[in-house]
Design a protein around this nucleic acid. Structure first.
Length: 766
DNA sequence: CCACAACCTTTTTTT
DNA sequence: AAGGTTGTGG
């Protein structure tokens, strides 16, 4: 028996050895999914399959790297080297570079990150003289992204009446035009955004059957990890590639689909049986990671999912402690309690710091725990947040690299043409940009031609400065094609005057920046050396290719020091820790505006009433203050007078975006009081737990007896986990009463209710 | 026309 | 914390 088949349970073994035809591997959390994938690939290779014929698509670069390492360990580097293994984005950007000319792109195309894309959108929105407050770049971008992920090109977008109707309803009817202009400018700049990498691969395969066939032939065996998180665009690529041979193995778990917000389609895994009728299923149901209690708790939640692929995840580990629910008054106390708990567990169990993890939903939530851990001298490391490659100084220097490689990259051009300051201001840049847009050219093309510059309206002084910049960059560009990456990077950093910038300034901020740049140079050195060792190209372009698809999670910050890990719940997927704290759960609790003595039936009847605080004259002031409160917990409750007389309390039906003045007057008139407070300490009118409350696509799920809470009353009253849409607030437009008004609708907690109450009373007393 | 300072706004989760 | 905007001064 092959050594790749040892130490596998029966389901795993079957999933490894049945290599032909479509396979669906349903892998519950902690069920040894990676092991199955790696062993399956190793097994394929041992059967004589060439490694270059295996395409394995993972979700993160890190996952790809780990898998590759394991396989290298099993079959040796000579064979493992030629596997096609990586994220969708990295694998297909590689293919797109090879086929770029077919699509009318340079093979050195730039990959625009989110920031570049947003900034480009901003300029487009301005140039179409649209209001940025209405056409928010973020919103427009997610619209465009959704379109791309569903393979809707600008032309199709404009022609699609239902999409256009939706844009009209959302009061952004020009989104289609923005999309078209965005696509045009990206093409001009020789740039693709993340979604383009997938969309253009699809178009390439659609319009060039001979190219599709080439890759169909090349990839005889296709494996896809985290299949439940693939979007339509990714799904189509895989489907096309697998069509002739159907040797496709997808691994995933419909219960772990967490990327719907970026277009992931859980149907992809649910419908696998329809796409590949000859499929075989393998269910990995034994969890090796968690205690029985945890598995049972998870199951009790998952059981509520509709349309699931049935499976019974079980654990043969010990039953373990109950999941502890800790109640804290505010974030300060929460930090304090978590730190205490960590200390206690560490004393008791003699665990290492690295056995602990603190998970939260948003990166910003780490702050309070950082503070408390630092105070107690507990070492920690944070994943995510502002990643290294997002820092300003790094992005600045990368922009130089990018522009040297692809002169048409307008976003980089704008970023550095006056950095460090060389007397080229907004007016000049604006003129160049306008002229470029008029001529359908890149900014570089305008700037590198003196006649164009004059035509753009630059005076001779400005034109000279611009020309000097162009000359500097041209020198870099010429060298970049022949010079090794590290050498080149150092030259650019020095000659562009970036390093000098920091030498003069000795502020701590500036020092940390120059350290970061040093770190970047080290990274380039490392890349260059290892590339040379492995016989790959080691020019700057090769480094950039790698870097532009890196993410936070890919950074190996695994300095082997013993530290607590902090990260978002999303990035923790697939990891293991002995002790896990999930913090900031109030964001996910049933909003307190809802809990209380209302029965669920009544709630339904009230049609989801939310409180809304709405100011007139100083609406803005309050809203920003309210946001502060949500974000930082710093609203000054002691000084509400700032807002006297400017707040009305209304009730609002979110679904219909309509005011209900009758509730307003009733409540205010009756007692100047908000509806019944939650029965926090009373069991007299418990919520009916048999029913589920659903609202705007969310499900509230009662917790089971796998949990224990220190404060049973709270637990009783409010302890619901729900799959909630973002946060507690939502910006809505209020129609009818005040057509132009927008308000932040939010679900107040106890303190906020008091505050609102105060306002209401003050208002009435006047 | 540009530089610089002061202020305001903005952030879910990720490739 | 980084970008954008506005205001001041050269």
């Amino acid at each position: 028996m092959s050594k790749y088949l040892e130490n596998l349970n029966e389901a795993q073994l079957q999933a490894v050895i049945n290599t032909e035809g479509p396979s669906l591997v349903i892998a519950g959390a902690g069920s040894g999914k990676t092991r199955v994938l790696t062993n399956r690939i190793a097994h394929l290779l041992s059967q004589g399959v060439r490694s270059s014929a295996v395409l394995a698509l993972t979700f993160t670069n890190k996952a790809a790297r780990e898998m590759k390492e394991r396989i290298t360990h099993m079959v040796g580097p000579q064979i493992a080297r030629y596997l096609w293994m990586g994220t969708f984005h990295s694998v297909f950007s590689r293919i797109l570079r090879a086929e770029a000319s077919t699509l009318g792109y340079p093979s050195t195309f730039t990959i625009y990150d989110t920031q570049d894309a947003k900034s480009l959108l901003r300029t487009i929105i301005k140039s179409l003289s649209l209001d940025e407050a209405v056409y928010k770049p973020g919103v427009v971008m997610s619209r465009i992204s959704a379109a791309k992920n569903n393979l809707v090109t600008p032309g199709a977008y404009m022609a699609n009446s239902s999409v256009r109707e939706a844009d009209k309803m959302a009061r952004i009817p020009k989104t289609g035009e923005i999309y078209a202009e965005y696509a045009r400018r990206c093409k001009n700049a020789g740039a693709m955004d993340f979604d383009d990498l997938l969309l253009l691969t699809n178009l390439l395969f659609r319009d060039h059957p001979e190219i599709l066939e080439k890759y169909q032939q090349a990839f005889q065996y296709i494996l896809v990890d985290e299949y439940q998180d693939t979007n339509f665009s990714q799904y189509m690529i895989v489907k096309k590639l697998a069509e002739p041979h159907q040797n496709i193995c997808v691994v995933g778990d419909d219960a772990q689909s967490i990327y719907a917000f970026r277009g992931a389609r859980i149907e992809n895994i649910l419908n696998f049986k329809n796409d590949y009728p000859e499929f075989k299923t393998y269910k990995l149901e034994q969890n090796y990671r968690s205690t029985q209690t945890i598995v049972n708790a998870a199951n009790s939640l998952i059981a509520k999912n509709k349309n699931q692929i049935h499976k019974t995840v079980f654990s043969e580990n010990e039953s373990g402690h109950k999941i502890k629910v800790i109640t804290a008054i505010n974030d300060q106390e929460e930090g304090f309690l978590v730190a205490n708990e960590i200390h206690e567990i560490r004393m008791r169990e003699h665990d290492n710091w690295s056995d602990f993890a603190i998970l939260y939903r948003t990166n910003a939530q780490s702050r309070i725990f950082e503070e408390v851990l630092r105070k107690r001298n507990i070492p920690y490391k944070i994943y995510g947040g502002l990643s290294f490659y997002q820092r300003k100084e790094i992005k600045d220097i990368l922009a130089y690299f990018r522009l040297a490689i692809n002169t048409r990259d307008d976003e980089s051009f704008k970023r550095i043409i006056n950095y460090p300051a060389r007397g080229i201001g907004a007016t000049t840049i604006g003129r160049i940009e306008e002229e470029a847009s008029r001529q359908n050219a890149s900014m570089w093309e305008i700037a590198s031609n003196i006649q164009h510059l004059t035509k753009a309206g630059l005076n001779s002084g400005s034109a000279k400065k611009v020309t000097e910049f162009i000359e500097l960059l041209s020198r870099f560009g010429e060298k970049a094609a022949q010079t090794e990456a590290f050498e080149m990077a150092q030259q650019i950093a020095t000659q562009a005057g970036i390093l000098a910038e920091f030498y003069q300034d000795k502020s701590p901020e500036s020092i940390s920046r120059s350290e970061n740049i040093q770190e970047l140079l080290n990274a380039i050195k490392l890349f260059s050396d290892s590339a040379q060792e492995e016989g790959r190209d080691n020019q700057l372009a090769n480094f950039m290719e790698e870097v532009s698809l890196l993410t936070d999670q890919d950074q190996d910050k695994s300095d082997d020091v013993d530290k607590i890990t902090m990260m978002t719940v999303h990035s923790s997927k697939g990891l293991e820790f002995n002790n896990v704290f999930i913090v900031g759960m109030e964001e996910n609790l049933f909003p307190s505006g809802f809990s209380g003595t209302m029965t669920l039936a009544e709630l339904e009847e009230e049609r989801r009433l939310f409180y809304v605080a709405l100011t007139r004259a100083r609406k803005k002031a309050f809203l920003s203050c309210a946001q502060q409160r949500f974000r930082w917990g710093k609203l000054d409750f002691s000084n509400p007078s700032r807002f006297i007389g400017e707040i009305d309390l209304h009730f609002l039906d979110i679904q219909n975006s309509r005011m209900f003045p009758q509730f307003h007057s009733r409540v205010l008139a009756e007692e100047g009081k908000l509806p019944p407070q939650p029965a926090r300490s009373s069991h007299s009118q418990p919520l009916n737990r048999q029913q589920q409350v659903t609202r705007t696509g969310t499900t509230a799920t009662p917790l089971s007896d796998n949990f224990e809470a220190d404060d049973p009353a709270t637990f009783e009253a409010g302890m619901y986990i729900e799959h909630q849409r973002f946060g507690r607030g939502k910006i809505i437009e209020i129609q009818g009463v005040m057509p132009e008004a927008k308000a932040k609708v939010f679900f107040p907690n106890q303190g906020e209710k008091q505050l609102l109450l105060k306002f209401a009373k003050l208002k009435i007393s006047r």
